[in-house]
């Protein structure tokens, strides 16, 4: 190879390695900027007061985000209750019950659902779900229930796609083995295939949880956003994401830092979830 060729190869190698390093740099930058701008705020407020404070009153410089943490957890739990059973069963349907034609009709719909902007979901919630809840129960209708329903619907494509892929990947020999023992199709699917695909299905659920806890716009539009721990599913609720998006536009000083710190708490939640997903995936691969 000529000298020019070697040089070109060397340059290419370095440039490509640099592009690969961009994702490392991005994560590092995000961490640095988020923590550098959030931690001083937390330090000033005091970590226990910040995390467990029940009052959020920026006018008086009181910043407790406990109701928001609880709000995020409640809304996410609601989304799981709504989305996970339907999602897993739908994945089982697509993988093991639907005929080829029905599956190929439904798959693009699920993909389209995955691509729809969260504002469209939020808007749909605002004009359809919220009035329905208002008709059922006195109040504005902007509620934990509305947010859980919309979010549950939004995490469906994530759960369906991941769970279906892992169900499709289960070796056919397991299914045949079960059938050959005289088990019905249904029993073979639920007692052999689903347990065999469990790690993938759980990874799908955690990814859905990740999406639900980080979802912002749809929740802001339907959840009511009161800074109170809700006492029923018809009460309004404010999540951490909603807190940031509602007040960041005009916040300054400590208020602004407290909002960034809210982002830090959310970031930590998501990092832990990502770690969980990766551990599950690794364990699944090891099997």
């Amino acid at each position: 190879m000529s000298f020019g060729g070697t040089l070109r190869e060397g340059v290419a190698h370095v440039v490509l390695a640099a592009t690969a390093a961009v994702s490392i740099a991005a994560v590092a930058l995000i961490c640095v900027f988020l923590f550098a701008n959030g931690i001083p705020g937390i330090a000033q407020i005091g970590l226990p007061d910040f995390l467990f404070g029940m009052t959020w009153r920026p006018g008086n410089d009181i910043y407790g985000i406990f109701p928001m943490i609880v709000g995020s957890v409640y809304v996410t739990a609601g989304a799981i209750v709504v989305g996970v059973p339907a999602g897993i069963l739908c994945a089982i349907f697509l993988s093991r019950f639907a005929s080829g034609r029905i599956a190929s009709l439904m798959t693009p719909c699920i993909e389209l659902l995955a691509g729809i902007s969260s504002v469209v979901f939020g808007f749909f919630g605002l004009v359809v779900i919220v009035p329905l809840i208002r008709a059922m129960h006195p109040g504005s209708g902007l509620s934990l229930l509305a947010a859980a329903l919309i979010l549950g619907f939004m995490i469906l494509p994530t759960i369906i796609t991941v769970a279906r892929n892992s169900l499709d990947a289960v070796p056919a020999s397991y299914y045949e083995g079960s059938l050959a023992l005289g088990a019905t199709h249904e029993r073979s699917v639920f007692r052999v295939l689903v347990p065999a695909a469990a790690s993938g299905i759980i990874a799908g659920i955690v990814l859905g949880v990740c999406r639900a806890i980080g979802e912002t716009m749809a929740v802001v539009m339907v959840a009511g956003n009161q800074v109170l721990i809700p006492s029923s599913i018809f009460d309004g609720v404010r999540t951490m994401t909603a807190n940031i998006v509602l007040e960041m536009g005009y916040a300054a000083g400590l208020h602004r830092e407290a909002l960034i710190a809210t982002g830090v708490v959310l970031f930590v939640f998501v990092l832990v979830l990502t770690l969980v997903v990766n551990t599950i995936k690794k364990r699944g691969e090891a099997r």
Binding site: I30, L207, C210, T274
Partner: peptide, 11 residues
Amino acid sequence: QGIPSIIYGLF
């Protein structure tokens, strides 16, 4: 891939 878009917005 797991970071929510609001965190990207903040960053």
